[in-house]
Simulated scan of single mutants.
Amino acid sequence: MDDDGAQPTLAERLDRLFSVRGSLTGREPTYRQVATAIADGGGPTVSPSYIWQLRSGLKDNPTLKHLEALAGYFGVEPAYFFDAATAERVEADHALRVAMADPVVRGVALAAADLSPESLAMVKAVIERTRALEVHTGRVQHTE
């Protein structure tokens, strides 16, 4: 859900998938790469320009086959594009994958793995307080 409570559009959700893929691989896929991968996977014919139109919001009513193909390419359920609960779950999974791609974050998680529940709660509280301070000072964006 957006900050104003509105559900993200198809274009916004598709844009998010491109961004997450870019965060994980170091570069967003091109529209041609997506179209080629869909075709190579036996999916429906879809042009790079049509994918761009969907992502930019110029087109907003794709066929179910196109949604399924895009969902398959990005590794999400087709419901991601229109079901808020599915989208929230996918977004949480993506946020975790992006965070765990950072070697420092992964190191913190691994260092905390064998701690007692009490110590984990303390580490979590320190991290939450640090995040709140950085959000307050503008060093990081608020992500909730």
Rank of each mutant, 00 (worst) to 15 (best):
L67G: 06
G26I: 03
R97M: 04
W52S: 11
P44E: 12
L24W: 05
A6D: 14
H66P: 01
R97V: 00
E68M: 12
R89A: 12
Y73D: 14
F81S: 14
I51V: 13
G42H: 09
I127D: 00
I127M: 07
H136I: 00
D40G: 11
L115G: 04
Y50P: 05
R129S: 07
S56Y: 01
A111V: 11
T63A: 13
R97S: 05
S19Q: 09
T36P: 01
E28L: 05
E88W: 06
M100L: 14
F81M: 13
P117H: 03
E91P: 02
S119D: 15
I38K: 10
V105S: 06
A113V: 02
T30V: 05
R13I: 10
D93Y: 01
E88C: 03
A113D: 10
A37W: 02
T143H: 11
L133T: 00
W52T: 06
V105E: 05
P44G: 05
E91K: 05
M122T: 15
A121M: 04
F82L: 10
L58P: 05
S23H: 10
S119R: 15
T25E: 09
G41C: 07
V135G: 08
F74T: 12
A37V: 09
A6K: 11
L70P: 13
A87P: 02
Q141M: 03
V34D: 12
V126S: 00
A84N: 04
L70H: 12
E12I: 12
V76R: 13
P62D: 08
T36H: 08
D40L: 12
S47W: 12
H94D: 15
E128G: 02
V46D: 13
G107C: 08
Y80P: 06
